[in-house]
Write a protein that binds this DNA or RNA. Structure first.
Lengths: 117, 117
DNA sequence: AAATAGTGCCTTGCTTAGCAAGGCACTATT
DNA sequence: AATAGTGCCTTGCTAAGCAAGGCACTATTT
């Protein structure tokens, strides 16, 4: 009888999703750079994770993509957050805060549960 | 060339694992109660998630299980954390802190990445 | 006594996402 | 010319959360 339509599922299985969204929100960027940046930040991941993830964000309308070639480098697919993406990011952030609060409560709360009636 | 043998994967896909471990660490408990407790804490989940999870923890030697019947109630399978489980929990906690720090850094850090050489 | 709701365990089948591995095309370096 | 790097992508595997449902027992209600 529990409603499971909350965004918790997305958080548990898709924490990376909104991390990537947040990275794109800061400034336009592209997949290869995101992979490297996440690695530097201690969130090592692989291209096999990021590219499908970006395709998902794009399909859901949270980001837009545009090919562009700068200088003499390889052409890159630059991603930019949409208004819908910004909204989603805000909600994601709140869900994230709720989530870590719940987890921290479970971790740190020394009081046993259900001992009092 | 990135080493992906870190515990990050476990965290991303198994945040619940160590939540459950932490709950059991506080005091002996059983599956049905854990499900209800997680729901109260805002981490709604289902029995289809918890029972396989408990079986995994047990198989990995992080918890032990013992059937016991109290009063006139149904027999329950009580779980208790092992020494190995306690150790794993400590490491899990540290990984968790690292993880949320990395995520929060990405979320809150207003400084664009890679702009400086 | 019979029916219902609750407790408490479990499994099957589906879906999703992260990953390793690898491929393709181009550019920069040696 | 050969190697390393950039930058995109896909296929196939595996693991985990979930919905749904089943089974057995107990407590409550009528």
């Amino acid at each position: 009888m529990v409603e499971l339509t909350n965004p918790l599922i997305q958080i548990k299985k898709g924490a990376l999703d909104f991390c990537v969204l947040a990275i794109i929100a800061r400034r336009e960027t592209y997949g290869y750079e995101i992979v490297k940046f996440l690695g530097e930040q201690g969130l090592a991941t692989s291209e096999g994770t990021i590219y499908p993830l970006l395709a998902r964000l794009n399909k859901d309308g949270l980001v837009t993509a545009a090919w562009r070639q700068e200088d003499g480098g390889n052409p890159r697919k630059y991603y930019r957050v949409t208004a819908k993406g910004e909204t989603a990011l805000v909600m994601f952030k709140q869900s994230w805060l709720d989530f870590i609060e719940a987890v921290n409560c479970i971790l740190e709360g020394g009081v046993a549960h259900g001992t009092r009636t």
